[in-house]
Simulated assay, not measured.
Amino acid sequence: MTQDWYIIDDVEKLDTPALVVYPDRVKANIDLLKSMINNVDRLRPHVKTYKNKEVTLLLLAADVHKFKCATIAEAELLAVCKAPDVLLAYQPVGPKLYRFVKLMQTYSHTKFSCLVDNAVAAKEISDIAQANKLTINVYLDLNVGMNRTGIPAGFEALQLYMDCAVLPGLNPVGLHAYDGHIHDVDLETRTERCNAGFEPVLKLQQDLKQRGYPEPIIVAGGSPTFPIHSKRKQVECSPGTFVYWDKGYQLGMPEQPFLPAALVITRVISLPDATKVCLDVGHKSVSAENELNKRIYFLNAPELKPVGQSEEHLVVEAGKDHAYQVGDVLYGMPHHICPTVALYERTYIIENNTLNGEWLNAARDRKITI
């Protein structure tokens, strides 16, 4: 009988809860992603999922040279790895802007860019850039339905892009359209919604070209809409979750056959009554923004039903006459891996079913050096 891929033979050495990663599966996911697009130069994966040097180096070795991130620490992590092209998918305001400039000055081998969605921020970015004798590449952040940041792709966006072009510290280079609100399980429905939201983006790109601007680069989508945007010949795509995958996307994006590559290992620590089991995987150990039954799925105990969770504990219903004992190890697949990774300072590496080192999730911190 073949041993399950996730089993750790020397798991007794592992204190729990613990985040573990299987590098061979990460590499397989990177290869799969490359096979799903016509040109690897169109890939701009998001570092927010994994937050460490090691996966960055695996991506660079696979000829992925463009990256996206959301924090200064993530941008610095990429720069330390000598990533050639880094988009901070965030509009730097206040001290973050000074840190961004310092990043550009410190890591001159990396080409940095950031987002902008209003004239006040654009002027501030330009002034700071000019004071430091820099020109900052900016992407117009477009609101295509997320309704958090961004400007609708219409006349105001056109005007802002043109305003950025005359500000001495800015160089507008493209459009950023993140449609993370679109995650219908049915791919046809997802495609229809994605295309509808993308039409104004294409029109804005054409309007800018007609006014004599170089064709703006379009950076679009995340994991849910990657199969759709990947078919647009010139669009850069920004999936992130693909490196580790998770239960949420496994259920919600069945057309994408990425492998689960990161798990949370937990142990039974108490048996509160005849039918319940208590595990050491609380809010601090797995992303808890979803409803209780959509936080963690146990590969070797799929029948367990969560009934309560606190900071350090998860209580599950196991049923009458269950066989679980204190000390039993469970292998949990998070429903949302990105914020789960942010809960762990380190990842334990599993190769050939044994513990084989650690990866530090350095960019889980808000600051590395800058």
Score class of each variant (00 low, 15 high):
residue 358 E to I: 15
residue 247 K to I: 01
residue 146 M to T: 07
residue 2 T to W: 15
residue 244 Y to S: 06
residue 127 D to M: 07
residue 55 V to A: 05
residue 311 E to S: 14
residue 167 L to Y: 06
residue 180 G to K: 01
residue 306 P to A: 12
residue 69 C to H: 05
residue 59 L to I: 10
residue 195 N to T: 06
residue 117 D to C: 11
residue 227 P to D: 02
residue 250 Q to S: 11
residue 101 V to T: 03
residue 349 I to H: 05
residue 26 V to T: 09
residue 9 D to T: 12
residue 145 G to D: 02
residue 136 I to L: 08
residue 16 T to W: 11
residue 183 H to W: 12
residue 279 L to G: 04
residue 19 L to P: 06
residue 143 N to R: 02
residue 189 T to P: 00
residue 9 D to V: 10
residue 196 A to G: 06
residue 330 L to T: 07
residue 135 T to K: 13
residue 148 R to P: 00
residue 62 A to Q: 09
residue 49 T to P: 11
residue 292 L to E: 01
residue 364 R to Y: 08
residue 91 Q to C: 15
residue 224 P to M: 00
residue 306 P to Y: 08
residue 300 N to I: 12
residue 307 V to Q: 12
residue 127 D to S: 08
residue 369 T to E: 13
residue 107 Y to E: 02
residue 115 L to R: 03
residue 128 I to N: 03
residue 187 L to I: 09
residue 219 V to F: 08
residue 76 E to T: 03
residue 239 P to G: 04
residue 229 H to Y: 13
residue 22 Y to I: 09
residue 77 L to A: 12
residue 21 V to K: 08
residue 344 Y to T: 09
residue 5 W to G: 08
residue 18 A to K: 03
residue 25 R to L: 14
residue 13 K to H: 11
residue 15 D to H: 12
residue 330 L to Q: 06
residue 359 W to M: 10
residue 54 E to M: 11
residue 246 D to P: 05
residue 300 N to G: 10
residue 117 D to Q: 07
residue 77 L to C: 09
residue 201 V to W: 01
residue 1 M to K: 14
residue 117 D to K: 03
residue 84 P to I: 08
